[in-house]
Nucleic acid binder design. Structure first.
Lengths: 135, 135
DNA sequence: TACAATTCCGACTGTAGTGCTCGGAAATCC
DNA sequence: GGATTTCCGAGCACTACAGTCGGAATTGTA
């Protein structure tokens, strides 16, 4: 998440190497490498190899939501297996009788709505960069 | 959760033993025992020992929310440690600069609102019992 | 009073996810 | 050719979750 917001902040100024991002965000570089691989496969970022390379957002910051990122990294939003996003009810034998399915369904849609409603553009707008850049 | 809804359904008809609940809800009794101990310590249910004993909701089903149950079993609602419910920001050094704290804060309040808005009474009203009882 | 039912309690186990490390191969720029 | 950087796979420590087990304390009833 922090990685993506960082990339969003630098969107339009070329690509950022993980090394730089890791330093800016105080995150372990080796770990980011692993995460960004998933984000790349999900089509959220694009990587460029070699010296001067790095990563860039694949879409405009206004077109990427927190939901996109969460889904890429953690799979479909499902408080319980029986309430997986979009899929038909397949894992639960109880369906009708289950007194709690309603809770998880409601929760799932609430969470999804909240996450899908926040774009990276908004997040960069509403927060300060971690290290201030000279003017 | 299923346990609590089951108790709510039987509220006003004496106490239910875990043995019976476990059978009705198809849940492992030994496991329920452990969970109900937590719920009891949280003041959500009361237990009565001995033959004919069992558990009862400590309050009216309309006075117990899904949020109460989740908080009892899983602790405060916090998508991230730095966004624990109610507490002042204490775990995060980044505070201002963190581009993602907003996401978790929003998520936390959304989830809490959703869970706190569902009472056991509503859940029993909107669902069928797992095994139908003869009239 | 004995017995059965039932809560109460603590310790233990297996599995999966999360955050993180390491070593190395491939591409790209200078 | 060398530095930079992405790409890839394997592995590790920790924690939470779901579940089991054995046994002690309490209470109603025959």
């Amino acid at each position: 998440m922090r990685l993506m917001v960082d990339l969003a902040r630098n969107h339009g100024h070329g690509s950022s190497s993980l090394h730089v991002v890791a330093e800016r965000e105080q995150l372990p570089e080796a770990y980011l490498e692993q995460l960004v691989a998933i984000l790349r496969k999900a089509g959220l970022v694009t990587g460029k190899r070699g010296a001067g390379g790095g990563y860039t957002l694949a879409r405009d910051p206004g077109e990427i939501t927190a939901g996109d990122i969460v889904r890429a990294l953690e799979g479909p939003i499902e408080p319980q297996v029986c309430t997986a996003e979009g899929d038909p009810v397949v894992n639960c034998v109880r369906e009708q009788g289950c007194g709690t399915r309603l809770v998880w369904l409601k929760l799932q849609s609430t969470i999804a709505t909240a996450l899908d409603g926040m774009t990276l553009a908004e997040l960069t707008r509403q927060t300060q960069p971690t290290t201030s850049v000279a003017p």
